[in-house]
Each structure stands twice: as C-alpha cells, then as structure tokens.
Design a protein around this nucleic acid. Structure first.
Lengths: 246, 246
DNA sequence: ATCTCTCCGTTCGGTAGCGCACACGAGAGT
DNA sequence: ACTCTCGTGTGCGCTACCGAACGGAGAGAT
C-alpha cells in the first residue's frame, strides 16, 4: 500500500494553497519569488512553544496540528490547518511567538515565506491582509469550538469531529495515523480512542489497521458527530474563499 | 453593602480602557468624538451568536464574558475581557459576526464605537491596528488555554482560574456572581461549583454569600490554580501595553 | 524463519463529574 | 408577620473516563 509516497515526484504549485490561490494576480506575483517549496514529513515541528518563528507556512498537501503541551506532558489539539490556511499567525498579529506547538499531522508539501516578507506585505494592507485576517477569524472559531467540545462532548463524538476535520483537508480517504497520536491530539487516553474507533469500525464507518485509517462511510460519520463540526465548517465556508482552480 | 451602585454618578474617561489609553495622542483624539459612553449592567447582551454587530465595545469598569451556547442549552465561557481589551474583534477581522455571545458578567461602564468608524481607522493601518491585532492574539491565547484547561483540569482548578481572571479585571475584591452563573461559564454543574467554592471558603480563601464573593487570600488562590492562569497572564503582559495613566 | 518493535485490543479497579431530588435559610415583596 | 423566590448545601446512583497492566498480532529487519 503506497499511501502517499508516489506523490513525491509531482510538481506542486503554490496555488494548491487556497489562500495563495485567492490572492489577486499582482499580489500573488509579488510573493512568488519568496515562496520556498517545502516537504513536510509526519512529525515535523513547524514551530515550538514560545520559540521564534522565522517563517509562515502555507500547506498544500500537508496537514498541520496546533498542539498545546502542558507542563506534565498532557497535550491537546487546539486547531488543525491544511491547504485552506496558513501556520504562524502570530507573526503578522504582532506577537512573534505563541505558547503552543505546530506539528505536521499528515505528511505532504507546502510553501513557506520568511517572516520579514510576510510582515512587509501584510502591513501594506491589501488583499493579503484581508485574507489573512479572515483566516485568523476562522481559526479562532475552530479554537473556541474545540474548547466547547472538550467540555461537553464524548470521546466518540470528538473522534468523529477530528476525522471529519482531517478528511476535509486531505485528498482521498486514507489517513496515516496511529490511535496513540489521535489520543494525544484529543487529549484523551489511547484506550479511549481504541474503544471509540472500535465502534466506528464495527459499524462499518471506518476501517483500521496499524496506523492506517480508511474512511468508508463519511455520511454516517456526519450523523454521529456533534454540532461542533458543522459550526466550524460553516464558518470556514463563510469566511474563506472557495476553491477556484484545478 | 453598596457594591457598585454609588459609582454610577462618577465621570468616566475612555483612558480607563487600556487599549484606548495606549493610543498615541493623535490617534486617540481622532476617535474621541465617536466614543459613546455606556452603562453595562449585569446580564446585558453585548452581541448575540451570529447577529450583526453594530459596535465595538471598550469596557472600562465592566467585565464581559464571551460565551458559547450549544444547541442543547449547555454553555461554556471562551474568554473574558475587561478594561485591558475590547469586545467585537470580528468587526475588524473581517467576518462581521461570530458564533458566540458576549454577556456582561460584572456590571460597570464602557465606551462603544460604531462599526464603520472602527473599520475605517483600523484599515488606515496605524497604531490602532497594531494594538487591536496584538490584543486579538492575547485573546487567542486565552481561548486556547481555556480549551486545554477544559480538557485536563479539575473544576477546583478552573474555579481558581476563573476567579483570578475576573479579579484581574476588577477593582476591589468583591464580585457579584451566583454559583449558578459561574457554573454556566465553566460549563459544569452548579453543584460542582458549590463543592469547589465550599472548599475555598472552608480554607479561608474566599467568603461567600448569596451572590456575593469576596476574595480574602489571593496568594493562596494562585497556589491552587493550574498553570493555565499564569500562561494567559504572561501573554497578556507581554502583548499588551502596561497601564500608564491614572 | 525468526526476532523485534510497534500498534492495537482488553481488562479491572478507581474517581470526577453528571442528573436528579430535596431541604434549608436569607431576603424581598406585600 | 407572612409568603415566595432565589441562592445554596447535601445525598445518591450512574457513567465516562482515567491509570495501569498485559496479551496478541502485523510488519519490517536480519
């Protein structure tokens, strides 16, 4: 099973990132010379808690998790970003760093942009600024919904939410992900994920095998998920540009 | 006990809001004609989920909770804002609305600014824009920390966090707040708050009586709170201007 | 083929928080 | 003084999730 290795030789365009694709032509052309293509392997730490961030990252096929790790080692995912957005908002928001980590959750590719370039173009105020701010608001919605979901919903529901959010940012239905890692992101025990995933598998919604999940029946996942998923999706659709190319 | 009624006759200055106070003189003067003073009584809904927001609010003595209410009526506080910030970031972020509510949690005063005025000054890009964006990032930190805290920490710890966050935005040590309302904000049962507050009272950290809480021993509250409080406070101190006037 | 490591399934006792029900007393209103 | 309501204390069974431990099976290495 060659899940994604074969794609490595393909040619990637920055326009596979929806934010970059949505820029007006002149804004896009101004950035292109500075966009550095980048392989983003599973587990790559895009930035660390409190560390200086030299780049803003625009995933194209990769998916990045924003994780918070507590002093005792417990962790929780705050939000997830794929080709609809970017990683490193604190650079243009003015704070330079944040107290969280960003880790590649699904291997793929992306582009990055030096901090100084982003700040310069952001501060000149055009379409880029508006796009980035709208994305930031969408991200805020995802974060708040995560907070609420953590408080009120069961592991079963949260697993569905997590699967759907990931699926939306993935091409295909196969994800490379162990239950252990999902547990880290949801901030629950691995056994809890085993149990929840076991139910989904028993009911034929997913198939599971040693670090590979295949979603078999997305509509029924959407039946089981809590309202949080739909709220986030609606806000992303409302705030961010539709896919136009390819 | 006249908790705050007598202050109603006092004269308030916009500079009691730290964001407004931090504006350079010319930026401040440009806004002053548009600032509308406003009484903010307990329970006032500053904006509703998904509703059009006509104003941005700058609390001076009031405290506002950002609440999310689920379809089944369950709720959770996402963040809290006092005179260090403003309410209504979606207006300048570009989304116009958000899927959450903002409710006055502690009565007081503030100023508001028409949406069009904020947007105009924000888009011209000066000190106001930078201030608002830095505040937004601080707010994001609070939201993410709330998400993590919801996941991993006990009601006891969360109550301490909530008390301290509120205390930081309050003049004095008395807050007008029932256990029922605290439960709504923490997203837990009222009985859970009763129990947690009972321990704090038994240990002499707070004194409690029918809708009035007095904090007696703040240092010991800080000993009991989880790390989340300190993380948020540190980010607010780092990102936002210090108090300069009065 | 065997070894080893990673990943997944399962069990079991312990506990925090839930939902519900009820009791009590302080204030406010009349 | 009387009631009525609101805010608070308490008890009880229940469930979801935790912490720890162990067993087993797939996949790659030698």
């Amino acid at each position: 099973m060659a899940f994604m290795a074969k794609a490595a030789a393909a040619v990637y365009s920055p326009k596979e990132n929806r934010l970059l694709a949505a820029l007006p032509e002149e804004g896009y052309e101004a950035l292109v010379p500075f966009l550095e293509p980048l392989a983003m392997p599973l587990g790559l730490s895009v930035y660390e808690s409190g560390g200086a961030q030299g780049y803003v990252y625009f995933p194209t096929t990769a998916i990045v998790s924003l994780l918070y790790v507590l002093a005792d080692g417990a962790s929780a995912e705050i939000a997830v970003t794929g080709n609809e957005g970017l990683v490193g908002i604190s650079l243009f928001m003015g704070g330079e760093t944040t107290p969280s980590r960003a880790v590649v959750q699904s291997a793929g590719h992306g582009f990055r942009l030096k901090a100084a370039v982003v700040k310069q173009h952001f501060d000149s105020g055009g379409a880029l600024q508006h796009l980035l701010l709208r994305f930031t608001q969408a991200l805020i919605t995802q974060m708040t919904q995560t907070a609420v979901c953590n408080r009120h919903h069961s592991v079963d529901q949260q697993l569905c939410r997590w699967l759907l959010l990931t699926l939306d940012r993935l091409q295909g239905n196969d994800l490379v992900m162990t239950q252990e890692l999902i547990a880290n992101m949801l901030g629950v025990r691995r056994e809890g994920v085993t149990e929840a995933a076991g139910k989904l598998q028993a009911d034929g919604l997913i198939s599971y095998s040693r670090g590979h999940i295949t979603v078999l029946d997305r509509p029924r996942l959407e039946e089981r998920v809590c309202e949080c998923y739909a709220v986030v999706k609606r806000e992303y659709d409302r705030l961010l540009p539709e896919v136009v190319n390819h």
